[in-house]
Simulated assay, not measured.
Amino acid sequence: MSTKPLVFSFFSGAGFLDLGFEKNGFEIAYVNEIHTPFLEAYKHSRLKLNIPPPKYGYHNGDIGELLSKNSNTMADLMKNAKLSSDLVGFIGGPPCPDFSVGGKNKGENGENGKLSKTYVQLICEQKPDFFIFENVKGLYRTAKHRAFFDTLKKMLAKAGYKCTERLINSIEYGVPQDRERIILFGTRDKGIEKFNWNLDIKFPDRSAFDHEWPDTAGEEWNLLNHPNIPRELMIEHWFKNNDVTNHPNSLDYFTPRAGLVKFQTIVEGDVSRKSYKRLHRWRYSPTAAYGNNEVHIHPILPRRISVSEALAIQSLPKEFELPESMSLTNMFKTVGNGVPFLAAKGIASSVKDFLGA
């Protein structure tokens, strides 16, 4: 019998959420990802981090293939897993553009939106001891999407799950980023009210935003005059901490076709535009979302941020890297899609505490 809880990971991307669980003593036993470049990045990063491959392997395909009507594979794996460990869980964040205000907004009828229901159907079929469901705040706050979210929770309740949810902001966990996401935790244990969301929270009740953060660059604002602002939430802290200039992905960034003019006219800290937001050295980043023409500019250099800098903004350990064979588009997409590592680690800590694992 395994001493570690076993976790089946779905929509794994490059594995940021998984890494948070791995660092809390969970064993990732199975990995599902349909996009081959993301799965190859997952394998590459684990090799660099000296983390062994999942005991039940990788599934490079649609999660719908795992439902009982299409295959008995998942049932066989779950049977084996439950014989191997006292606790078996599912974690995953289904693709979210259909629920994002800035995305397609097609909701449950969109191709990505349907995957949320498929994930919940798989949970109800296989009945893991616990699960994590992660998605954008639009699923929680937009009325028509919230109705769909409530339907998913009713499905889970019918299958015997007790659930608790929270709209988290990654900055609460010490991530240098303003990023809200809805997290749903479910268990077959009836004591769900004992789940402690605040276990690893470093900046509760939006206290991270209460400081006198700089607006845009100017001589009147001096870092030395603001000693109480948390340095660990500043981009510059993470760039230095992760040694981004010497990181394997330091030279991975898009070069503008139109030259340097646009980059040179936007002042440090100006994030007022939908795109071409210049970050500030002494402030946290807006949400790291590098699709839909979203562009983040380096605080002081006339270029877009690099992959190594984006990984730092996602609070990844400096040893985490993406393979050079990966396209820039796929690199930034998997970074932007991922759950910030410190937030993932904090959520996993609360799950571990609740389970007594």
Score class of each variant (00 low, 15 high):
5 P>N: 13
19 L>E: 05
22 E>I: 13
22 E>P: 04
28 I>R: 06
28 I>S: 02
36 T>S: 12
52 P>I: 00
56 Y>T: 08
57 G>S: 09
59 H>T: 13
60 N>F: 08
64 G>R: 15
64 G>V: 05
69 K>E: 13
79 K>T: 10
84 S>D: 14
90 F>C: 02
91 I>E: 04
95 P>F: 13
96 C>S: 04
97 P>L: 04
111 E>F: 03
114 K>N: 10
115 L>H: 01
118 T>Y: 08
123 I>T: 06
127 K>H: 08
127 K>D: 09
129 D>C: 04
133 F>L: 03
136 V>Y: 12
155 M>S: 02
160 G>K: 14
173 Y>L: 03
174 G>W: 09
183 I>P: 08
197 W>H: 08
199 L>K: 05
204 P>K: 08
205 D>A: 13
212 E>Y: 02
223 L>R: 08
223 L>Y: 03
231 R>T: 06
232 E>G: 02
241 N>W: 04
248 P>C: 10
249 N>Y: 12
256 P>G: 00
264 Q>Y: 00
265 T>G: 04
265 T>N: 06
268 E>R: 13
271 V>F: 08
273 R>L: 09
294 E>Y: 09
304 R>E: 00
306 S>T: 15
307 V>P: 07
319 E>F: 07
320 F>S: 05
330 N>H: 12
334 T>P: 13
335 V>D: 07
337 N>P: 04
337 N>C: 06
340 P>Q: 11
351 V>K: 07
357 A>K: 06
